[in-house]
């Protein structure tokens, strides 16, 4: 009987597609060197806070933003997660995307899509798509929190 040979030893193959699960260099970089992580928020002055995820499934994400009151642009974005490698990389990239080049406006940030993050990461296995949504959900919560706080001020 012939045995099937695995072409790439050490790689993970997606069970549905047989496609390679190798992560891109950008994903690995953001996983090993996550940007804008906040381990202790006690002294961090934020304008909006969002929590997303499902403690039952195991993944949870907290994200904080600071917003420039004049321009309505996000000037700082910090996060912390109990999540997988993809969630870490994707949220790290997200925190870069919302603050780079002087930050993006909160209204515009509400329309950010997982596809944009995945594109910047150079791709993500399809079965890991939902991991890129976690940070976005927390960001949207944080923005809604900021907008609510602004109204009541």
């Amino acid at each position: 009987m012939k045995k099937k040979k695995n072409k790439k030893i050490g790689d993970v193959i997606g069970k549905n597609k047989g496609k390679s699960w190798l992560y891109t260099g950008i994903v690995k970089d953001h996983f090993f060197h996550p940007r804008n992580v906040l381990l202790d928020e006690t002294n961090y002055q934020y304008d909006g806070k969002g929590i997303a995820g499902n403690p039952l499934c195991g993944d949870i994400m907290a994200l904080w933003i600071k917003v420039d009151p004049k321009t309505q642009k996000i000037k700082d974005c910090k996060w912390r997660t109990y999540g997988c490698a993809s969630a870490i990389s994707a949220t790290s990239m997200l925190s870069v995307m919302v603050t780079e080049k002087g930050g993006i406006a909160v209204k515009k940030a509400l329309n950010l899509k997982p596809q944009q993050i995945i594109e910047r990461l150079g791709g993500l296995p399809e079965l890991k798509f939902h991991c890129s949504v976690l940070g976005l959900d927390a960001l949207k919560e944080a923005i809604n929190d900021y907008l609510k706080n602004k109204e009541t001020k």
């Binding site: 515009k108 329309n111 899509k113 596809q115």
Partner: peptide
């Protein structure tokens, strides 16, 4: 999403929701 962007549709004219 990729194809629409390639054809000049701006990001703020696209909204997406994926089922997974």
């Amino acid at each position: 999403w990729k194809e629409l962007k390639k054809n000049g549709v701006k990001e703020n004219f696209i909204k997406t929701e994926a089922f997974y």
